[in-house]
Simulated assay, not measured.
Amino acid sequence: MKNISITDILQLPVQERIRLVELIWDSIAAVPEVVDISPELKAELEARLAEFEENPDAGFSWEQVKSRLNDGSWRSV
């Protein structure tokens, strides 16, 4: 594999840099078990999952979220 410098990367067109970031992200997402998360974050995620499992109908649908983002009403919460 050819070594590429940061300078070379920064000289790429934006679309190519975005594609590079996507490829890097996908390679990380393919092995989530190797990504370390803090005990605090893990506890928070587990608590949120438990809360969802207790009441899966709480919260907002994706349509409601999109609507609130589009009309700006999320600012009033």
Rank of each mutant, 00 (worst) to 15 (best):
residue 19 R to E: 14
residue 27 S to A: 15
residue 69 L to M: 15
residue 60 F to Y: 14
residue 21 V to Q: 10
residue 42 K to C: 04
residue 7 T to K: 14
residue 66 K to G: 05
residue 40 E to M: 12
residue 75 R to K: 14
residue 36 D to L: 12
residue 67 S to G: 05
residue 4 I to E: 03
residue 9 I to N: 08
residue 19 R to K: 15
residue 54 E to H: 06
residue 29 A to T: 05
residue 16 E to R: 12
residue 51 E to L: 06
residue 23 L to W: 10
residue 39 P to A: 13
residue 60 F to W: 11
residue 71 D to E: 02
residue 62 W to T: 11
residue 2 K to A: 09
residue 36 D to K: 10
residue 41 L to K: 12
residue 19 R to N: 13
residue 3 N to A: 10
residue 37 I to Y: 06
residue 60 F to M: 12
residue 3 N to P: 01
residue 68 R to Y: 04
residue 27 S to K: 08
residue 54 E to R: 13
residue 48 R to K: 12
residue 41 L to T: 08
residue 70 N to I: 03
residue 36 D to M: 11
residue 22 E to T: 03
residue 24 I to K: 15
residue 26 D to W: 06
residue 19 R to M: 13
residue 66 K to I: 09
residue 1 M to I: 10
residue 15 Q to P: 03
residue 28 I to R: 14
residue 77 V to Q: 07
residue 74 W to K: 01
residue 63 E to I: 03
residue 61 S to D: 04
residue 4 I to Y: 07
residue 17 R to G: 07
residue 54 E to V: 01
residue 21 V to I: 12
residue 10 L to C: 13
residue 3 N to V: 02
residue 38 S to M: 06
residue 67 S to V: 00
residue 44 E to G: 05
residue 29 A to R: 09
residue 29 A to L: 13
residue 23 L to D: 14
residue 9 I to G: 11
residue 10 L to R: 15
residue 23 L to P: 00
residue 75 R to I: 04
residue 14 V to M: 09
residue 5 S to K: 08
residue 40 E to V: 09
residue 48 R to S: 03
residue 70 N to M: 08
residue 73 S to P: 04
residue 59 G to E: 02
residue 23 L to C: 11
residue 55 N to M: 03
residue 30 A to R: 07
residue 30 A to W: 04
residue 9 I to P: 05
residue 74 W to F: 12
residue 31 V to D: 15
residue 28 I to S: 05
residue 5 S to A: 12
residue 76 S to G: 04
residue 7 T to Q: 12
residue 43 A to Y: 00
residue 67 S to Y: 10
residue 6 I to E: 07
residue 14 V to W: 11
residue 65 V to W: 10
residue 55 N to A: 09
residue 63 E to Y: 06
residue 31 V to R: 15
residue 77 V to M: 07
residue 40 E to Y: 10
residue 6 I to K: 06
residue 43 A to N: 00
residue 12 L to W: 11
residue 73 S to V: 02
residue 11 Q to A: 11
residue 47 A to L: 06
residue 29 A to M: 11
residue 13 P to I: 04
residue 62 W to S: 12
residue 45 L to W: 09
residue 55 N to I: 00
residue 72 G to R: 01
residue 42 K to P: 00
residue 12 L to H: 05
residue 66 K to M: 12
residue 72 G to F: 05
residue 48 R to L: 10
